[in-house]
Amino acid sequence: MVRISGAVLIALLAAGPAGAEVVAPQQVIFDDGAVPSSLTGVPGNAEVGRTIAVDRKLGNCLACHENTDLAAEPFHGEVAPPLDGVADRWSEAELRGILINSKMMFEGTIMPAFYRDTGYSRILPDFEGMTILDAQQVEDVLAYLLTLTE
């Protein structure tokens, strides 16, 4: 009985946010650059988000942002504000909006939009129609960022 429940649970997890609609990149609704509602309805996993933040092919947050919590990782960038205490400075909704498409809040920023799949010029064919992170990865990174308080 227990075993069956476990299997069902795994199946549900594997299928993603059962019952909750994943918000497609073009359906995201911004409010002054912020996005109040979750993209997936599934709470983000901060540990996974931390890994994504480091991964050069995913978040690669360290390329531009210094982050004391990741001091063990070499090479922190200087292009953007440090992430230390970022959760004290921004609300969850604001951070979600910044991750999805920071240009909605900061016009002209160098920061890539991590959940936008159109409007690019000369995108490499491998990335055509794709976002840098998927919806749950955005929520995971968001959960991680919310742990960065001072």
Partner: peptide, 17 residues
């Protein structure tokens, strides 16, 4: 002009940073 999925222009890195 911003190009690519990272949506960056030469100027973003080499003029501004």
């Amino acid at each position: 002009t911003r190009y690519g999925q990272l949506d960056m222009a030469c100027a973003n890195c080499h003029e501004d940073n």
